[in-house]
């Protein structure tokens, strides 16, 4: 037991000496040399991706509008909603709010885990 303890202490001392013996290497333009060799930022491809996404969204909206008679179902459903009893609307609003908050919480927790790792 005594030998084991002595051996551990010696190992710790050796590790400490090794860590202390490693010199800090000053940058001396190293980072600048690395950055100079990097390929140019890919801003162009990102803007193309954004344009494609916006285009597809507009196309999808136009198609949806055409297929639903300019979104007439929304007006019909709003009228139905207005005719519902107040208590039902209140419960429905509460349930939807609860669902949205739960979703946001799950997303926030997942993001937090991503950031931590």
């Amino acid at each position: 037991m005594g030998d084991e303890l002595r051996s551990t202490i010696t190992e710790d001392a050796l590790d400490r000496q090794l860590r202390e013996a490693a010199p800090y290497i000053h940058d001396d333009g190293f980072t600048a040399r690395v950055l100079a060799c990097l390929p140019p930022p890919q801003r162009e491809s990102r803007s193309i991706r954004s344009a494609i996404l916006i285009g597809l969204t507009l196309l999808g909206s136009a198609l949806a509008s055409m297929l639903t008679d300019s979104g007439r179902f929304i007006v019909v459903d709003l009228v139905r909603l207005a005719q519902m009893p107040f208590a039902s609307v209140l419960i429905m609003t509460f349930a939807i709010g609860l669902l949205a908050i739960s979703g946001a919480l799950v997303a926030a927790m997942a993001k937090l885990q991503d950031i931590r790792t």
Binding site: Y24, I25, H26, D27, F30, T31, V34, L35, L38, P41, Q42, R43, R46
Partner: peptide, 16 residues
């Protein structure tokens, strides 16, 4: 953002 300044900071931190 393909932020090369951020990458530069990572290089500075770990280069030694």
């Amino acid at each position: 953002d393909d932020d090369q300044h951020a990458f530069g900071e990572l290089v500075r931190r770990h280069q030694s």
